[in-house]
């Protein structure tokens, strides 16, 4: 569904953020992109979302090139690809009602149909009551806010959702429930989940790509990489995750 080939991005001559990044996402798959700060994972996500243009290489979606300058394509692309961001406090407009927040893709992409009903359905899917519609973001907890952000991402029935550290800002007990929500939703869509948290990615994605300093150091099936990490960085990353006492 998504083909990324030899992607390159940098600022100026000396600062390279991404170098020779290639991977692909199968339709219906859950792919995790794991990296720490400076790995280029946020830049990669911006390129995948068509918010910036790569300096080299290509991203193609269902055979078409993702080009931020191609307005016609971007309109179709936005209908099919939506996003969830890290900070549920910053990702919801504090002055908009939940109904308008979730309804934004429907309105902006002029999607036909009863928007109110579609928003209600999306709310239901993320486990929130319809009464949330007329309320403002500050009336909700962090976890509920992230549910609202997820509802916005799925309301237009996209084929793929890109999530950027979408559970990292949440408390542990909330985090597990949002991960479960993502898991349930991913049954019917393709999910690209970017995170620094190996545990979360392991719980959610069957395939992972490990990024370090703008390069892919390892990619493959999650279970295999966790069992036998090949690259020293992956080994170090895995060893660094604190574990519960036995």
């Amino acid at each position: 569904m998504l083909e990324i080939a030899n992607l390159r991005f940098g600022y100026g001559r000396e600062k390279t953020v991404l170098e020779d990044v290639s991977f692909s996402v199968r339709a219906g798959a859950n792919l995790g992109i794991v990296g720490e700060s400076g790995s280029g994972k946020t830049t990669l996500l911006r390129l995948l979302l068509g918010l910036s243009r790569p300096q080299g290489g290509t991203i193609s979606f269902d055979g078409e090139t993702v080009d931020a300058a191609d307005r016609g394509f971007m309109r179709r692309y936005r209908r099919k690809v939506q996003a969830v961001f890290q900070d549920p406090y910053s990702s919801l407009d504090p002055r908009q009602k939940v109904r308008d927040i979730i309804g934004e893709p429907l309105a902006s992409l002029s999607i036909p149909g009863d928007h109110r009903q579609m928003v209600a359905a999306a709310l239901d899917e993320v486990g929130l009551d319809e009464s949330a519609m007329e309320r403002l973001p500050h009336q909700f907890s962090g976890g509920q806010r992230q549910r609202i952000a997820i509802a916005r991402a799925i309301v237009a029935r996209p084929k793929m959702v890109l999530a950027d550290e979408a559970v990292s800002a949440l408390d542990l007990s909330t985090r597990i429930r949002i991960v479960e929500l993502f898991k349930a939703l991913s049954e019917s869509l393709t999910l690209v989940f970017v995170s620094h948290d190996l545990g979360v990615v392991a719980a959610l994605c069957e395939e992972i790509v490990i990024l370090e300093a703008g390069r892919i150091v390892e990619q493959g099936r999650t279970s295999e990489i966790l069992r036998a990490p090949a690259h020293p960085y992956t080994q170090r990353l895995l060893a660094s995750v604190p574990r519960m006492p036995a």
Binding site: S173, I176, D197, V200, A202, A203, L226, R243, M244
Partner: peptide
């Protein structure tokens, strides 16, 4: 809390 933490732990252990 412990259950949630263990779930991520278990996921890492494959």
């Amino acid at each position: 809390l412990v259950e949630a933490a263990r779930a991520f732990d278990d996921a890492l252990s494959g």
